[in-house]
């Protein structure tokens, strides 16, 4: 009883880590929820930070949409199968949207690290994340270092905020923005991994199968900064014209985007405003081809 009083009092005083528990809930739910959707959006962090199902639903109110993007999310058979299982089985409207980046069709993402990590998480951890996150949030732990900063240091000017939406979208905001920030890590990635032709072939084959099975497939290249696009094209060997042609041939609809119309906060991920813009453009495009 005394312990409960102490804990109760301290829970009102000490700082809380809201983002941690929301993100834990978000990823477990995205991966393990049995809910079915009409539209699944697949890809990597550019997709889950860049496409908001909520914005898309303004154009497509009749559809249930899930953003099924993951960090380092690959476009490979394991993910295709997982995405297919999230589609409503007996609906006339089934759409898969593919955000194709250089990394998503290279060896870099073939292990589906984040997706598998969520899928294989011990059961008790999943239960805690799904059902006890408000309790864990209320009793957020603090480290002595955090406590020192909280008590004695002014709040930092720079920040990186993530807002987790249950439809799989993460609204991201970073200050100050630096459009060159992500370049060095991509240079490192592309030194070891480039767009893999066999992975693209697998993707085209899958698109063909989906097309034959009545699933509408839409492809696009998530917008990035000019430097990033150049880097992907030259070092990562991303050939957008060829991918567009092969995707279209396999039966997909390709949305060509003017990258100069979008802004990123690190060269790789869209800022909030551009994410809204992309989601709206994507929704209008799907509306035009489907209805």
């Amino acid at each position: 009883m005394l312990a409960a009083i102490f804990c109760g009092l301290l829970s009102f005083v000490l700082p809380k880590n809201n983002e941690k528990y929301l993100s834990e809930y978000f990823w477990s739910r995205k991966t393990l929820s049995k809910q079915k959707y009409n539209m699944i959006i697949m890809g990597d962090s550019r997709v889950y930070r860049g496409v908001s199902p909520q914005i898309m639903q303004k154009q497509l109110p009749q559809l249930k949409i899930l953003n099924f993007g993951y960090s380092n999310g690959g476009l490979n058979p394991a993910m295709f199968e997982a995405a297919e299982q999230k589609l409503v089985a007996n609906s006339s409207t089934k759409i898969i949207v593919l955000g194709i980046t250089a990394n998503s069709v290279s060896g870099y993402t073939e292990k589906n690290t984040q997706y598998l990590q969520e899928l294989m998480r011990p059961r008790e951890e999943v239960i805690e994340r799904l059902y006890f996150s408000p309790v864990k949030y209320w009793f957020s732990p603090v480290s002595p270092q955090q406590l020192k900063l909280w008590l004695f240091e002014p709040p930092p000017v720079a920040y990186y905020k993530n807002e987790y939406h249950l439809n799989g979208y993460v609204r991201s905001e970073k200050f100050p923005a630096d459009t060159m920030e992500a370049i060095p890590s991509y240079v490192k990635d592309f030194t070891n991994y480039k767009v893999d032709g066999s992975k693209l072939e697998t993707l085209y084959k899958q698109v063909g199968e989906w097309n034959n099975n009545g699933i509408t497939v839409v492809g696009f290249r998530p917008p990035v900064s000019f430097s990033m696009r150049m880097l992907e094209d030259t070092m990562g060997l991303y050939n957008e014209a060829e991918i567009e042609a092969r995707m279209t041939k396999a039966g997909a609809h390709w949305l060509k985007l003017d990258h100069s119309q979008y802004k990123t906060y690190d060269g790789s991920h869209l800022d909030e405003y551009s994410a809204v813009q992309l989601s709206d453009t994507l929704a209008k495009f799907i509306k035009s081809i489907h209805w």
Partner: peptide, 19 residues
């Protein structure tokens, strides 16, 4: 002794490391 253990429980709750 009871106060001591109640405090220890509070420390466990708020200063627990990454599980």
């Amino acid at each position: 002794e009871m106060v001591f253990y109640a405090l220890i429980i509070a420390v466990i709750v708020f200063f627990r490391g990454e599980g």
